[in-house]
Each structure stands twice: as structure tokens, then as C-alpha cells.
């Protein structure tokens, strides 16, 4: 994140997102796939690192044993293999091979950003659930960061489901909704979003118009 100034001098904390150019790799239709969506790919991947299936997904592969099957092959985007591929549900007038840039957000005021949050490993209840922990003194022994009681006694002799405890925290899909679009830099394909988005610096996120009313 960084900080920019608006014309009236207000300082705004912004996250800089490189939004595009993205290639349209596939268009899902109700007839063939059962749902409508557009599949976008971002950032080229070196061919030597891409699996054959990834290379074949973006362009037609020629091989000794390739022969035409009965069905027509799907149209291909004819681009390099892509690092980050996501589908966006809904109707679209985009066609395979088209390029999507930050211009898509020209009219958009608020966005939802989905990414993979920073992994914190096995975290205790204080970090994971904002528990208060226990006192530093007054007889508390070696349990300063523990939760208190977790339930009742002989009746019911078990814990109820949903009891919050330590465990894996982070490294999960997370969406931050209703973030304001501060500025668009069409030349460099940059999207400036107010506030923080999920994930580490340099992480991949998908951005869409907010569905929050």
C-alpha cells in the first residue's frame, strides 16, 4: 500500500493493483457448460514452465499423433500460457482471444477484491479469534494466551460444535467487499483501490464490481 493526495489535499491510503492486460481464454455457455462465465488469464508464464495442458489451453498444439476428432475444437486465445486464471460468472459479450484491460473499471465506483489471505500457520485463539487471553498475574500459570473455559461439565459431557479454538489461520480465500476505486491509470493498467486487499504484497487477486447494495 501507499498514499496519494486528492486535489483538495486529502491523503488517501491506496493499494495498487495491476489490472490487466488479461486474455479471454474461454467463454462458458449454458448450452455447453451449463452456466455462463468468462475465463480470464493474467501474466504470461514461460512455456518451459507450463504443463502441456496449460499450453494447449491457450493455443492449438501440433503433434505427430494429433488427429482430428469428431467434435470441432474450441476456439483458442492464441497467447502465451497464463499464470493466474479465474472465471467470472455472468453474461458477457467478450470473445475468446480478446484482451481485457483496466478500462473495464472506468465507470465502476466500488469493487470486491478476492484473494488468498496471508498464511499464519497454526494460530492460537488470541490471534485467530481476537480472544483476550488471561491475566498476566493473580495466579495465572503458563496459560496467559489461552482461552478460558470451553463448555459445560458432566452434562452434556461434550463440546458443542462451533467452539472457537486454535488452528490453521490464513492462507484461505478471502473477499473484501465494497472498496472504493480511487483512480485508474489506463496507460499502465493500474487500479488504485482505497484501503487494504487480502494477501501479501505481489499476490494475485481478482477484482469485480461490487455486489453489495
Amino acid at each position: 500500500m501507499t498514499q496519494i493526495y486528492l486535489e483538495d489535499g486529502t491523503a488517501v491510503p491506496v493499494t495498487v493493483v495491476q489490472a490487466g492486460p488479461c486474455h479471454v481464454l474461454q467463454v462458458r455457455s449454458v448450452d455447453r457448460d451449463g452456466y455462463q462465465a468468462v475465463q480470464l488469464g493474467f501474466e504470461d508464464k514461460p512455456r518451459r514452465l507450463a504443463a502441456r495442458s496449460e499450453r494447449g489451453h491457450v493455443a492449438k498444439l501440433e503433434g505427430k499423433r494429433s488427429k482430428s476428432r469428431g467434435a470441432d475444437a474450441l476456439p483458442k486465445a492464441d497467447c502465451e500460457p497464463q499464470k493466474f486464471i479465474r472465471e467470472f460468472r455472468g453474461e458477457t459479450d467478450l470473445e475468446v482471444g480478446a484482451t481485457v484491460t483496466v478500462e473495464q473499471f472506468a465507470e465502476v465506483k466500488k469493487v470486491d477484491v478476492t484473494g488468498t489471505s496471508k498464511g499464519r500457520g497454526f494460530a492460537g485463539v488470541m490471534k485467530r479469534h481476537n480472544f483476550s487471553g488471561q491475566r498476566a498475574s493473580h495466579g495465572v500459570k503458563k496459560v496467559h494466551r489461552h482461552a478460558g473455559g470451553t463448555g459445560c461439565s458432566a452434562s452434556p459431557s461434550r463440546l458443542f460444535k462451533g467452539r472457537r479454538m486454535g488452528g490453521q489461520y490464513g492462507n484461505a480465500k478471502q473477499t473484501t467487499r465494497n472498496l472504493e476505486v480511487v483512480r485508474i491509470d489506463a496507460e499502465n493498467n493500474l487500479l488504485l483501490i482505497r484501503g487494504a486487499v487480502p494477501g501479501p504484497n505481489g499476490g494475485f487477486v481478482s477484482v469485480r464490481q461490487t455486489n453489495k447494495v
Partner: peptide, 14 residues
Amino acid sequence: MSQAIMDLVEKTAL
């Protein structure tokens, strides 16, 4: 690469 992008944005605010 990402630092270059950040510099680009910050430059507009300087």
C-alpha cells in the same frame, strides 16, 4: 517489478 509500479504511483503524489 512490483516496486517499479509502486514508484510510478508514488511519483504522481510527490
